[in-house]
Design a protein around this nucleic acid. Structure first.
Length: 414
RNA sequence: GCAGGGGUGGUCGAGUGGUUAAUGGCACCGGGCUGUAAACCCGGCAGGCGACAGCCUUACGUAGGUUCGAAUCCUACCCCCUGCACCA
């Protein structure tokens, strides 16, 4: 099956250029395709996983994936979907972010010099060297302003009289130019990305056609939402990051472990490499027992976590979660906070501890949760604001502090 | 540029001099029911302190002012929306 159909079957495809041509191209040639990433943070997040998986599928299908990190375009800022001009990043910040992103991508695609080896490219490499007059003459001539201002992102901004700075107006041209450069240097003929990028992407396709006379294609994915209608990859605490420094492996695992029943199959198709038969079976809920559904969620969580953090870490997270939620298991890798024995001698208030561990943002909130009967120490409900934790709570060698049902933390006396 | 409308808590949206930290919906959090689902029901939802009664600090675009007292009145400024004009 060609990559396009794989992507389509798994639920990635939202819009694309001519399907027949795309299929033909993917079936008869080794295609080089790219996706752009914003170096706005040093880590990518769960939402980026969608397009990362697309790159991986491309490579697995025998093609060559390019990940282009917009070091140059980030200096400009994409106005699409933003009502205000985006904050521009400094070069230094972008450079350091690139390093982090490179590491994360390498878990999904092979970076090497083979014919299908992935490459990470920073478009600053060519954008910074542009000569304005030359660029206008060689590239600018292909862009009709009449057409550009019809693009949704620009049109909205113009209508609102809010002002669209010239630098932002150029974003589309620069992204299209990226495509052209990648075509010229690597023979790139496919660009993929989020649906919000459609306009920018097809502008690139056009440019490649006009300048190089070659067919260039595009595929976009829709923004993935949860069945509850939320943007995928967001929690109350913020984005779910791929970096363990920002989102612990345990929390990452728990994010997937806690997905809505309705999302199991859809997510498994997009965020894992399990074959579709298995995906469909995982996602099936009717006729299944509760245990089977939960097992499916565990499998999904382990699979996704393993892709990002490795098999071993994923299994540890699963075991920790199991242990935290009742079943016997190894708590070694569960989220843990250490408390000094000195303090435990005199007793540490639960309220303080909840704040110290970061489980709750303030003492006020901690007291409130106690009133709401949402705080437990070793499965015993805390009913008094003044409850303190002492060595007596560490009979098991540790103590478990719990907020609500899902947030749990192991305390160790040191 | 002229005229009219508007900027309220994560979001939507009430409130137009005084129990208003600000009705209500959504989101979110806690509890119940469950399965670490969904739906539903109950409660909470600015921050801090606390002997849990209470106290303090911030908050209704920004900065000032009037007043015992303002999100609510006045002044200036910023931004958005809708007409008209200008540019053609």
């Amino acid at each position: 099956m060609n990559v396009f159909d794989v992507l389509k079957e798994r639920g990635f495809v939202y819009q694309s250029t001519d399907e027949t041509e795309l299929r033909h191209m993917l079936e008869t040639e080794r295609v080089t395709g790219y996706i752009g990433y914003d170096p706005t943070a040093e880590s990518l997040h769960a939402g980026n996983l969608v397009t990362i998986m697309m790159l991986a599928h491309l490579q697995r299908g025998g093609h060559r994936p390019l990940a282009i990190v917009g070091g140059g375009t980030a200096l400009v800022g994409d106005p699409s979907g933003r009502s205000e001009m985006r904050q521009m990043l400094t070069k230094e910040k972008i450079a350091s972010n690139l390093v982090g992103i490179r590491g994360q991508l390498s878990r999904f695609v092979e970076f090497d010099d083979s014919e299908t080896g992935a490459k990470l490219i920073d478009n600053a490499e060519w954008l910074e060297k542009l000569h304005y007059i030359e660029f206008l003459r060689d590239i600018g001539r292909y862009f009709a302003v009449n057409q550009m201002i019809k693009a949704k992102g620009y049109a909205e901004r113009l209508e609102r009289e809010q002002g669209l700075s010239f630098i932002e107006f150029n974003y589309q041209i620069l992204q299209a130019y990226d495509y052209l450069v990648l075509h010229q240097r690597y023979g790139c003929r496919l660009q993929m990305g989020g649906a919000d990028q459609w306009g920018n992407i097809v502008a690139g396709c056009d440019l490649v056609r006009r300048v190089a006379g070659a067919g260039a294609h595009a595929v976009t994915v829709e923004l993935i939402t949860t069945s509850a209608g939320e943007k995928m990859g967001k929690t109350a605490a913020g984005a779910v990051w791929l970096s363990a420094d920002r989102t612990s492996v345990y929390d990452f695992y728990q994010y997937w472990r806690n997905v809505d029943d309705r999302d199991i199959g859809r997510f498994a198709a997009i965020f894992t490499f399990k074959d579709m038969q298995e995906v469909r079976e995982l996602g099936r809920t009717d006729g299944k027992t509760v245990d089977e559904i939960n097992a499916a969620k565990e499998e999904l969580a382990v699979a996704v976590t393993a892709l990002v953090h490795g098999e071993e870490a994923a299994l540890q997270a699963r075991d920790s979660a199991r242990a935290m939620f009742g079943a016997a298991g190894d708590l070694t890798n569960a989220p843990t906070t250490e408390v000094s024995r000195d303090r435990l001698e005199t007793g540490v208030s639960v309220v303080d501890l909840l704040v110290e561990t970061g489980m709750l943002p303030s003492k006020k909130e901690a007291r409130r949760k106690i009133e709401e009967r949402g705080i437990h120490v070793n499965d015993e409900m805390v009913s008094d604001h003044h409850r303190v934790i002492t060595m007596r709570d560490f009979d098991a060698g540790y103590a478990i502090l719990r907020v609500g049902k899902k947030s749990r933390r192991r305390l160790l006396a040191t």
